[in-house]
Design a binder for these strands. Sequence first.
DNA 1: CTGTTACTTGCAAGTCATTTGCATCTTTAG
DNA 2: CTAAAGATGCAAATGACTTGCAAGTAACAG
Lengths: 146, 146
Amino acid sequence: MKENREKIQELLREKDIRVTRQREAILEVIFESEKPVTATYIFSRLQDGCPNLKLSTVYRNMNLFVGKGILRKLSLGIENNESYFELIRDEHHHHLICIHCNSVLPLDCPLGEFEEKIKEETAYILIDHSVKIFGICPHCQKYSKA
Amino acid sequence: MKENREKIQELLREKDIRVTRQREAILEVIFESEKPVTATYIFSRLQDGCPNLKLSTVYRNMNLFVGKGILRKLSLGIENNESYFELIRDEHHHHLICIHCNSVLPLDCPLGEFEEKIKEETAYILIDHSVKIFGICPHCQKYSKA
DNA sequence: CTGTTACTTGCAAGTCATTTGCATCTTTAG
DNA sequence: CTAAAGATGCAAATGACTTGCAAGTAACAG
């Protein structure tokens, strides 16, 4: 975990963002989590480590990070309308969402040719897209026969 | 327009929903619109025709209609978190969304084989999916060179 | 037609996620 | 080390949506 601290500071400087205790803590939580997280998740994870951090600060920084290209905001369309955020580590991918436990898995992008076709047919300028597949993960298949 | 009234009443009876002035009016707006609509859009369209309709009534009925399989609720992930609703007319399809004017066009489904692959690879039970493509429509390309 | 009953609505207040104004810190460049 | 640019805490505001309740209305039996 300690190494993350360094990486995070470097990342922030790279992106011209001031290094504050709060921002380090927030990013640390995000780095430690494989799955996309919500602002309230981060907030609760930091109740101890960063005692008088406010939720509004978390939100403010999530927006900052999204604007700086560090995070991506997902609208997963899960029950409550909470937004999920994930690190932009990487290459383009999509999400497989378990509707029972809300866990999220990455998927490769199946579009490509399809986008070409759409571009030609509609004359839209295509900017981005998202593919979400909803299902029930093996674990929930076992343990929540509802 | 007048013919819709009949269809709507029939639809409501079919689904065991009481026929009220409000519900007819709401569905009429939805039937007249090709694109998915928001609750507030419906509400504003009915300010004249249905004077003391309340927004809460619109929401209540949107939920009812979704529950009865008349409408589908979309989470398009557009700026504000307003939900869009569309008639379930039909076959499975997806959406092409203009990020300037928020208009929505239907798209054919490009998955299929991809889902098969995912099912095998992950052992998830797949339930549903959504594909959204974001872009700029020809009209906005012309008129909003921002 | 009329009454009864159950379902709906209007209205107002309440949630819940997220944002914002402002005074008070903190970071950072000089 | 210090000033200024920017962050944060705090509290209140916003916006989408929901809910409790009393009054209104559809539907159905008679």
